[in-house]
Nucleic acid binder design. Structure first.
Length: 275
DNA sequence: TTTTTTTCCTGACAGC
DNA sequence: TGCTGTCAGGAAAAAA
């Protein structure tokens, strides 16, 4: 599932591939894909637009055209593909096809149909867009003092706070486990119990891990026909997530798996301190 | 107000 | 083999 690094990689790849290429035709096959417009409006408005600028906020992809801000969220399994030929109409997981003026086809593929797209008249203040109403600062802009202030009265577990996009945007379930492992903090720790140095450490590790993942993801993209940007994920060296029963790389004790707010959570009970 | 649970959706996989 | 049940997961909506 794409988190900020995968989204950034998709974005960078798309920018290289389709920047300034006009969209000749838009076909939406799944009604719920377009959140704030119906599919006919979406198809009509985006036709003849071209993407002039690409940006990312948290896990959201942003495409700025001449007249619109087009925002996409891939959720768990959304993927963009570029094809040289019109894709197989029997593929029931392709929910949108954007025919490009140079003869290529940009396709949106999403097995579980959780991804969403938004289209708004272009604005100077991106953060004012309704889809970003509950999105906090991007992980790039986060600081230890910001996280410290945000958590002073919180009774929530720190992992839930990291997954809360209104605090820091861009962290998902996989990286939250890795960040807390690197920070040596038990995911069940109460956020309000953390001191300033804990928050500094969390933000430091967040940036180290996510920037590292972006760097790793950015180097593996080469094929038009594979999904854009998602292959980089497999290069990551995870130390905690999905390592249940395996020896912790620090202390050799087995990594444990628990459920925390409905999310699978992996951690080392020896190395990670509960506060 | 804040936090927790449910819902969305489908494929993979376990167990019978 | 084929059926049923469970799980995975981000975020919005509903419930507590």
């Amino acid at each position: 599932m794409p988190e900020a690094p995968e989204v950034q990689t998709v974005l960078t790849t798309l920018e290289k591939q389709i920047k300034d290429v006009p969209i000749e035709k838009v076909e939406i096959f799944h009604e719920k894909l377009t959140e704030n417009l119906n599919k006919e409006q979406f198809e009509e408005k985006l036709r003849h637009q071209k993407i002039e600028r690409f940006f990312r906020l948290g896990k959201y992809l942003g495409f700025e055209t001449q007249d619109y801000d087009w925002i996409a969220h891939l959720r768990m399994e959304g993927k963009f593909y570029l094809f040289d030929e019109y894709p197989d109409p029997k593929d029931k997981h392709i929910h949108a096809i954007f025919t490009l003026a140079d003869g290529r086809y940009l396709c949106y593929h999403d097995t579980r149909k959780f991804g969403r797209m938004y289209l708004y008249p272009k604005t100077d203040r991106i953060s004012d867009l309704p889809c970003f109403a509950n999105v906090g600062v991007d992980f790039c802009e986060a600081t230890g003092s910001y996280l410290y202030e945000k958590t002073r009265n919180s009774k929530k577990e720190i992992k839930s706070v990291l997954l809360d996009q209104s605090v820091i945007a861009g962290i998902g379930n996989i990286y939250a486990d890795e960040i807390l492992f690197a920070s040596k903090l038990d995911p069940r720790s109460i956020a309000g119990h953390l001191d300033r140095s804990d928050c500094d450490k969390i933000v430091e590790e967040t940036k180290r891990i996510l920037y590292g993942a972006i760097k790793a993801g950015g180097t593996t993209i080469r094929s038009y026909t594979s999904s854009l940007g998602v292959t980089g994920r497999f290069q990551l060296k995870l130390k905690a997530h999905q390592k249940e029963g395996e020896a912790c790389v620090e202390c050799q004790q087995p990594i444990e798996k628990i459920k925390l707010k409905g999310r699978s959570t992996y951690f080392c009970p020896t190395c990670q301190i509960r506060k």
